[in-house]
Amino acid sequence: MLNTLRNRFEQGYRTTKYPKEKIELWKRYRGRPQIQDASPAGMARACAEACPQDAIDSEKRVIDMGRCVFCGECEDRSQGTFVAFTQDFEIAVSEKEHLITDGAIPDLAAHARQHFKKLFGRSLQLRQVSAAGCNACEADLNVLATPFFDLARFGINFVASPRHADGIVVTGPISRNMKTALLETYAAVPDPKVVIAVGSCTLTGGPFRGSPEITEGLDSLLPVDLFIPGCPPHPLTNLHALLTFFK
């Protein structure tokens, strides 16, 4: 008993004050990409060529955050003169075309569906469906339940049954072998329901684009309400998206 109490004391209080207080992430973290206006066209082409995900359009000078895995090769190549990754983790969007950006991202709160706020603002129960990702997105959704983030204090929970859920959170590039199970889970959620796509794989196929075994974008199967980019999205990106869109 004494040991249990000693441990409790040593562990202390750990829950973040976010979103009331801002959090600064470490400088090596790669959040919202910012395209630099002054960069020459040649550098833009070099970055587009270097990008393993072919996420950069050098003519339009934009980057597709849905394809991007935030590896930072383009930033390395251009020494930050064409693309620089900021530490801004608040990068979720409500429309797929908003993922294609020069660095400016529309305010999520302004685009949030107002009727969702009314319906789910005080209580949001989500069923997660893992559909052929690498389990990193799942892991960084899971940590939202740990004491630092403590998602439940906002009235948001992950639940065991789609019948108890207000929506689904999908991760992974939806393999051929998971498609039916995903669609059946969606069908089992009562209306009105929400669909949240998490991670590069779910948004566009991510690293697996081109494979005949996967789906390049959940939006080709289901109406997606919230797109959360990243590989995987930082837990704070997920937290920000859920709070801004629903609260």
């Binding site: 893992s130 052929a132 393999s175 690293p207 081109g210 494979s211």
Partner: peptide
């Protein structure tokens, strides 16, 4: 098998720059 993404067949045909990401 539900998570099968066809990685081993995807790799040989994919651009070399994609290999570390896959």
């Amino acid at each position: 098998g539900y998570q099968h993404r066809g990685i081993e067949t995807l790799i040989p045909g994919a651009a070399a720059k994609r290999l570390p990401i896959i």
